[in-house]
């Protein structure tokens, strides 16, 4: 595990890696009663193997549409998404999603919630792996608790364990910490960075927070709205592990302003910024 971390640090964020997932000319129209909504327009995006990619954009710009399509939960109107050589048209065992709000089943306790993927895949529960993960995220001993008995942060940690328990190689996270308070959010960001460094998984992380994106990402793909497009991609070459207080440092704030300016560019000046 530590070897992977060192290798990653040695390799650096902008190192050339093989492609994990390829989104090619993804276009999506939603058909509604009042007409069609153009949610994605010709989005092409490469997800590199082992990278932490953040997709950043204001609410409604098509982030979820893109991510859910990458997870095989939605069909595209045009274009395609490939995981290696495979075309993604339905959920894939190598891919796990983590949703906003932990999305635990309230009628199951923690252990049963985490066992759900095994049940659905009709596989024996990998208790050893689950126990190790529970210990890793400090949930060891809470297995018999029900979701309503846990804090938001604990619930989201449980959902991370649930996703990692089946050992996917690609994690898709849709604003996973959006509903948490700022302190818990910082903790969770640290945790997910550590897990990423330890496991070497590829993570695509959707957020509308510029600082969260910069803190976590190797690369930040900024989306613009109506129709959803990838406007720009920024490399974030801050060395890891990144401590939380890095966010108050001038060079970090510099990056935030830089990305903010790139988003503001092209907008009417009086339009308020939806991004924080």
């Amino acid at each position: 595990m530590m070897d992977a971390t060192h290798m990653r640090k040695a390799a650096g964020a902008s190192d050339k890696r093989s492609t994990k997932m390829l989104v090619e000319r993804a276009t999506k129209y939603y058909q509604t009663r009042t007409g069609s909504v153009h949610a994605l327009d010709n989005v092409s995006l490469e997800v590199r193997d082992g990278e932490f990619l953040c997709i950043l954009g204001p609410s409604g710009c098509g982030k979820s549409t893109l991510l859910w399509s990458m997870g095989g939960l939605h069909d595209l109107t045009d274009g395609e998404i490939r995981l290696g050589p495979e075309k993604i048209t339905k959920p894939h065992p190598e891919i796990a999603m983590i949703f906003q709000d932990a999305n635990l089943l309230p009628w199951r306790n923690l252990a049963a919630n985490i066992a759900l993927p095994f049940e659905l895949k009709r596989k024996p529960v990998d208790q050893e792996r689950i126990d190790a993960l529970l210990k890793r995220v400090d949930l060891w001993g809470f297995e018999s608790k029900f979701p309503r008995e846990l804090s938001g942060g604990m619930q989201q940690r449980a959902s991370i364990v649930r996703s990692l328990s089946v050992n996917p190689s690609l994690l898709l996270m849709d604003e996973p910490f959006g509903a948490l308070d700022a302190f818990t959010r910082d903790e969770m960001n640290l945790l997910i960075q550590e897990i990423w460094m330890e496991t070497g998984k590829t993570i695509v992380f959707v957020t509308h927070s510029i600082s969260e994106a910069i803190f976590l990402a190797d690369r930040v793909a900024v989306m613009s709205a109506r129709p959803g497009r990838i406007a720009r991609i920024f490399d974030i070459d801050i060395p890891r592990p990144r401590p939380v207080d890095i966010q108050t440092r001038p060079d970090f704030i510099e990056r935030v302003l830089h990305i903010k300016a790139s988003i503001d560019h092209g907008r009417k000046p009086h339009v308020g910024l939806a991004i924080t």
Binding site: W68, L73, I95, M97, N103, L116, P117, E119, L120
Partner: peptide
């Protein structure tokens, strides 16, 4: 829908979604 999406993301069949969700 969130719970159904969750089950589907783990490869659940329509029948499994019915019995488990």
């Amino acid at each position: 829908l969130a719970k159904i999406a969750l089950a589907r993301s783990f490869g659940a069949s329509t029948f499994q979604i019915f019995t488990k969700i």
